[in-house]
Design a protein around this nucleic acid. Structure first.
Lengths: 220, 220
DNA sequence: GAACTATTCAATAAGTTTCTTGAATAGATA
DNA sequence: TATCTATTCAAGAAACTTATTGAATAGTTC
């Protein structure tokens, strides 16, 4: 095998991997599976796709070794094959968030309606949490919180927030996080809390970002 | 704009970015541009493509904001738009190197003909260089070495190596590196040095990987 | 073992990507 | 201003990708 053949083969295989990610639905699936395993039905419901279409896209991801399956009763559960998959998605997402004006604008416009405060970055949060009166609020569904969360966070799922507002204190600043930058639970929480007179920001990143940043070694 | 519209738009734009990377030639171009800027002609020559085809692929990368251009005399020079682009490619590459058996096998088979020693990882290298008698050997063309290299490395371009073998000492161990894991200059160097009775390994990673790992702050 | 149910498969039509060829362009040099 | 040269554009054929539909499957539960 000569140099050119070697390169052609390697780059062709790797481009196959990239092609498997190169679809809006499949990116959304990868982002969702960053939360933990899901059945085809759940994936279809959360992403607004038909079941047959979700299944087809999941086959593409499976054939490229980006996801793996496990049977549980009547359901087949899909999960990301390893942490590198989410890490790659995160990097691609960050190119978009940092250098595509179009993405920046859409995200900014969408959030502007929900909050006048800037989102907080994870690096800032961790340094501020020590000394200040910040409370970290995980607004994902209970099951996801139980599967893993940022230390010291309290869990009030977004749909329970109106009923549990009494648990919160006006003297604190609340920083809400959820699944990632494109998850809107945190934006909804910030909007609701701000309207009720609380101090609230969203965290730019979500739980999976914290996990790959700080738990990489322990997870392996 | 509702939640679903917001997500559809963001994921569609980001998938456009991923699609722009989802081609073997374009991945090779990104990898090459990790070394520094290049003209269309140089890119075509180094990757074995026709000029028209290289140009067409460069247009795709440019339209997705992955590369930028600069005119220099008669030539148009292409370069990566920012460090995140190489970082994303690196992560995708690493999924392949770590979890695609097919990639692992091709790389292993190709290297086996060149060397019986395992490649050294960057993390190992840096800890060993202090105390041991390792010499780091950059076998890229002189111009690339001058544009940036790993500290303490000496530069002997692969095509000058046979003529300059007298500069090397048999008491040392030589660790050769070049552009990245799929660059074969280092493999050729290791093969040559081993045949001449020197102790030599290749470094798994290349210069751009060192750069984004250790120079990220200074470059920004 | 029968019935059930989540998931996959197969076929199709519309849209997209790729490479090749040869012509066109824009900018630099003389 | 004319010439030169690197790069881009345009057109077309072949090969992929995608969503939809309805049928098939495989594994579980009763």
């Amino acid at each position: 095998m000569d140099k050119r053949q070697f390169k052609d083969r390697v780059y062709t295989i790797l481009s196959g991997l990239v092609k498997a990610m190169a679809n809006p639905h499949r990116l959304e699936i990868i982002d969702l599976l960053g939360q933990g395993e899901r059945s085809v039905e759940e994936i279809a419901a959360e992403t607004g796709m038909s079941i047959a279409n979700a299944s087809q896209h999941l086959q593409v991801l499976k054939q490229s070794n980006l996801v793996q399956i496990k049977r549980n009763g009547n359901f087949i559960l899909y999960r990301l094959a390893n942490d590198n998959v989410y890490k790659s998605w995160k990097d691609l997402r960050e190119i978009g968030m940092e250098s595509l004006e179009e993405v920046k604008k859409i995200v900014k416009d969408f959030r502007e309606k929900k909050s006048s405060f800037e989102p907080m970055r994870m690096d800032d949060l961790l340094s501020r949490m020590e000394s200040s009166n910040i409370i970290l609020l995980d607004v994902r569904p209970e099951q996801e919180f139980k599967a893993g969360h940022i230390p010291k966070a309290i869990n009030i799922p977004i749909d329970q927030l109106p009923g549990r507002i009494g648990e919160l204190k006006r003297s604190k600043r609340y920083v809400a996080y959820c699944r990632g930058p494109f998850c809107v639970f945190a934006d909804d929480a910030v909007q609701f809390l701000t309207e009720k007179g609380f101090k609230a920001n969203r965290l730019e990143e979500g739980y999976p970002d914290w996990k790959i940043k700080f738990q990489a070694e322990t997870v392996r």
